[in-house]
């Protein structure tokens, strides 16, 4: 059984936004709905200053707060690790939006469902890469099956020192970030 995960090397990101719009095209989203975003930070003071950009999206937590709070079980987790939303069960209470510590949810105003990154579930099972991964000129993201020891992500995870976002929340995210 595959277990999907993503490795993000935020240090390579230059904030061009290609991942956002490639995803929007893939899922044919309206312009204002984005499943991923960039967090910009300035560290230091002029002229000794660093500009850091970190891509953030649904972390596909193994202990997802959004799933625990969903009253009808519309949010569910697949055995391959991907957290998805069953639209027909969603009542639109937005509790998941309030509960997600990553701010990963965004309300689809047409469907009235709090949407989020899907790890391109329909496509990755066919061996395709999510477009946020494949379109990136800086190769910030690596996506793959961590159960497969020969996958690029398995090899990188074995070699790189990584961290997760807000580990203290106990969410156990499936997105890892390269430590620099």
């Amino acid at each position: 059984m595959a277990k999907y995960a993503m490795l993000v090397d935020a240090g390579r990101c230059t904030g061009c936004g290609a991942c956002r719009i490639a995803c929007q095209m893939q899922w044919q989203l309206p312009p204002e709905i984005a499943y991923n975003r960039l967090e910009h930070r300035e560290k230091g003071t002029y002229p000794k200053v660093k500009w850091e950009t970190t891509p953030v999206q649904c972390q596909h937590c193994d202990n997802p707060p959004c799933l625990h709070v969903c009253p009808t079980g519309a949010t569910y987790k697949r055995s391959d690790g991907i957290v998805l939303i069953d639209h027909k069960k969603c009542i639109g209470c937005k509790y998941c939006m309030v509960a997600c510590p990553y701010g990963a949810r965004t309300l689809d105003h047409e469907k009235m469902v709090p949407e989020k990154c899907r790890f391109c579930a329909d496509y990755v099972v066919k061996g395709q890469q999510p477009p946020c991964v494949s379109t990136c000129m800086n190769e910030v993201r690596v996506f793959g099956d961590v159960e497969d020891p020969s996958s690029k992500i398995s090899q990188l995870l074995a070699g790189e020192s990584v961290y997760q976002l807000l580990p203290e929340r106990g969410t156990q995210p499936r997105i890892y970030y390269v430590k620099r």
């Binding site: 061009c16 490639a22 477009p131 494949s134 379109t135």
Partner: peptide, 20 residues
């Protein structure tokens, strides 16, 4: 949607936000 051409020198399989 669009994706970068894998051979083309400028894109090499990648596209920026403008392209999409």
């Amino acid at each position: 949607k669009a994706e970068g051409h894998p051979i083309h020198l400028k894109s090499r399989g990648k596209l920026c936000a403008r392209g999409h």
